[in-house]
Write a protein that binds this DNA or RNA. Structure first.
Lengths: 217, 217
DNA sequence: TAGATTGTTAATCGATTAACAATC
DNA sequence: TAGATTGTTAATCGATTAACAATC
């Protein structure tokens, strides 16, 4: 069945950045770009850009470069942004509320359809039109709505149990904001945002000026 | 002048995770651990752990393993957590407020001393005892207080200019939460949290089950 | 002393960069 | 056609893993 290449996460993690730069080029009415010029803007090698893209197919044209709009759309498809993802937030505290207010996720097809919390004072509240429900009804909701992604913004004490439950109820991806590592069945994908790790890394960089910094995402 | 090794960012980005696991071991009254046992808990190779640690010196003892408390403290020192870092938040919106409420940063020596915003309705407010100031007084504040780190949680439109200003005023590190890449003088370290990148990566993983995932931080 | 486990060197593996023929 | 730039192979570089002698 066609392609049988294994694409490394290093490559995947660079795609959103390409996607962002290409989006900006579109905003600036730039319709065509060469790997060299893009490499200068992004501070990476042109070679890397061409290698990365060629993991997925030949999107460019010799002597011309890449069509910005087309490449943007293709990378979007690779990332799955052409599909709608139904999301919920578990934990309506500060961080949960902050993320609920992110408009930009919708634009990429990530649709927030529910927020859950244990706190009676938050239940019934509405954030950007989305209701905060009692966590007791989460099982029913996740199963009936076929929720794809859950953002875990709750206290770390309950994260493991909640993650296991969600996995059982058929969730496909967890976006985990707690300082806990989740080990789940492989049909559930996990993406961690360990904020404190980033802060510690920054502290190190401040201390030690002699870096090798390979790349940021 | 002693050590002259170049330590890669791949190694540095693993340190916070070691630090976290060692902290948990301390909480569980485990005072000693071998690289093999730690590797099983963390799902990495024992070899990698020993290699990583030996970049900074021999913290273990043959036939015994590592003293948990000692290793934890040493990694803390490497990361610079034994020093106090003065922090400010620029942008008192949802995300800024969420981060202002993170207690755990203080424990690692990151001390929030001010929050800044342009919105008159937020100025004067207090979050966890820390005042929200008018952004007009930020220059004076940063210079007088010798602020180390700024968390940038403001709208992306103003981020570049603010970052440049902060760099000029002597900031050492920027923790950037906006979908913008900052190119600054090398005496200013930048750590990005591109939330949307993480979400897009998660969408890809959901789509494509055949991963190579190298490692999370 | 015997057993365990590190520190460290060597081997492997993977990712990045360079180079260039293919081709628009 | 000549020039530009891709797609792709080959070379290099770096990171991970394996192996084992040193040593507690």
């Amino acid at each position: 069945m066609s392609e049988e290449r294994k694409i490394s996460m290093a490559v995947i993690r660079r795609l959103p950045r390409y996607y962002r730069y290409l989006g900006e080029l579109i905003d600036n009415d730039i319709s065509r770009i060469s790997s060299r010029e893009l490499s200068e803007r992004m501070k990476v090698t042109a070679s890397q850009i061409r290698q990365d893209l060629n993991n997925f197919g030949g999107f460019g044209q010799q002597g011309y470069g890449y069509n910005v709009e087309y490449l943007h759309a293709e990378i979007g498809k690779i990332l799955g942004l052409d599909k709608t993802h139904k999301m919920i937030i578990v934990g309506a505290g500060n961080l949960g509320q902050a993320l609920a207010n992110y408009q930009s996720f919708e634009k990429r097809g990530f649709k927030l359809i529910g927020i859950f919390d244990v706190n009676p004072r938050l239940i019934g509240m509405t954030i950007r039109g989305i209701e905060v429900y009692d966590i007791d009804v989460m099982e029913k909701f996740v199963k009936e709505q076929e929720v794809d992604i859950a953002m875990l913004t709750m206290p770390k004490e309950n994260v493991r149990e909640t993650a296991n439950n969600l996995a059982e109820w058929g969730i496909k991806g967890l976006w985990n904001f707690s300082p806990v590592d989740l080990y789940l069945p492989k049909h559930v994908q996990v993406e961690n945002v360990h904020l404190s790790h980033g802060l510690m890394t920054l502290a190190y960089k401040i201390k030690d000026q002699s870096l090798t910094e390979n790349e940021e995402d």
